[in-house]
Every structure is written in C-alpha cells, then in structure tokens.
C-alpha cells in the first residue's frame, strides 16, 4: 500500500461516462477505477474488466454443504447410532433431502458472501479514500492513475474535453486501512487544478 497520484474526473450522467471511458482507454491512460452510485450495466465490459467467477465459488461451497449433510447423516444413522425410526430403513434418503438442501443453500450463501467481502476487502472498520463525496450519491467518478510519464495538466484538460464537469488531482492511499470515517487521517492531499 502506498500513496499514489490520481487525476479525478467527475461526470454527471452515465450517457457521457460511457464514451468517456472509451476515449480515455483509447488514449492509453490507465483507469484506476470508476466509482458509481449504482451498478451501471455494461460499464465493467466497457472498462475491460474480467468477468467475476464468484458464482463458481458459490457452486463449490454448495457442493461442500451437500456432501457434508449426506455423509454426516449417513454416518450417524448407519454407523454411529442406528435407530429404528418408524420402520424406515436406516439409510432413509427421502427424509434427508430437506436438511441436505438447507445445508447446501446455507453453505453456498454464507461462503459466497464471505468470499465477496474478502475479495472486495470490505469489513466493518475498514476505511478507504473516497475521491468524491458524491460518488455514492449522484456523480460518476473516473479515477486515472498517474504514471511517471503522465502529464497531469494534459490529462486534466483531456478529462474536461471528454465531458467531466469537475477535474482535480489527488494524492491518496490506494488501498484500505483500519479507520474511522468521522476522523481525518491525513492519508491524502488534494490539489485543485481544474
């Protein structure tokens, strides 16, 4: 984790955002991220992001649940402590379907949510630098990382030309840290250019 320099462009409408993303990528700039107040469909593809494979993880977690339930109940009722229940066979599969199903769903759901939180690095008390306070309200915020060769002012005016209504440069921590949102931790500086 380190402090980095970013040029931040702020857009008002997703209709402007899409061509802007295309142009910025065409110009060869590296988009650090785009922050939006709601999921904008197709933006991930426009940015060239890889499809997520979270659902595959969900499937695997589900499989773990199924196997656990079936093997455990089989072991309990056929090996560990066989009991005659209502004249049913010890291996009473039809009667185990409900619990097997529930455990499958439980494992898949809990596993997926935890995986989601882990890969997104989200947790209580986690704090991030937010490039714009309205990124969760009504602004679409495109953040471009400045490399060694990037010309900031050129990039800023380029951002203006593709439709950003507000452009500035910020030096900020790119990762997360443990912190409180009501306290300023001075992990970034802001320089207004545009």
């Amino acid at each position: 984790m380190a402090l980095k320099k970013f040029v931040v462009g702020c857009f008002e409408d997703e209709k402007v955002l899409f061509p802007a993303v295309a142009k910025v990528r065409k110009a060869g700039y590296k988009i650090h991220d785009v922050y939006t107040p709601f999921p904008v469909h197709g933006l991930d593809q426009a940015m060239g992001l890889r499809e997520t494979s979270l659902h595959t993880a969900g499937f695997l977690f589900g499989l773990i649940g199924t196997t656990t339930a079936v093997t455990f109940m089989t072991w309990v009722f056929t090996k560990d402590w066989p009991v005659n229940i209502g004249g049913k066979p010890n291996f009473a599969l039809p009667a185990w379907i409900p619990i097997t199903f529930e455990l499958t769903v439980l494992c898949a759901a809990v596993g997926m949510v935890l995986s989601f939180l882990y890969i997104c690095q989200l947790a209580p008390f986690v704090k991030r630098h937010h490039f714009h306070a309205r990124a969760t309200d009504d602004r679409f915020v495109m953040v471009i990382e400045c490399g060694e060769k990037t010309n900031e002012s050129e990039l800023s005016s380029f951002m203006n030309s593709v439709g950003a209504i507000e452009v500035n440069t910020q030096v900020a921590e790119e990762g997360w840290w443990i912190g409180r949102y009501d306290q300023d931790q001075e992990l970034y500086k802001q320089t207004n250019i545009a």
Partner: peptide, 24 residues
C-alpha cells in the same frame, strides 16, 4: 462508516455485488 464496510462504489465491486445478488 462501520455499517458500510468501507464501500466505495468501485465498478469491480459493483460487478461482484451484482453477481452475488443474482446467485443469492
């Protein structure tokens, strides 16, 4: 701040969030 888990609105996060919601 605690309750939002440090949510930022990152596109990658949204993409995973959508996938999560759909599977859930």
């Amino acid at each position: 701040g605690i309750a939002s888990f440090g949510w930022s609105g990152s596109t990658k996060h949204w993409q995973r969030h959508e996938s999560l919601s759909l599977v859930l």
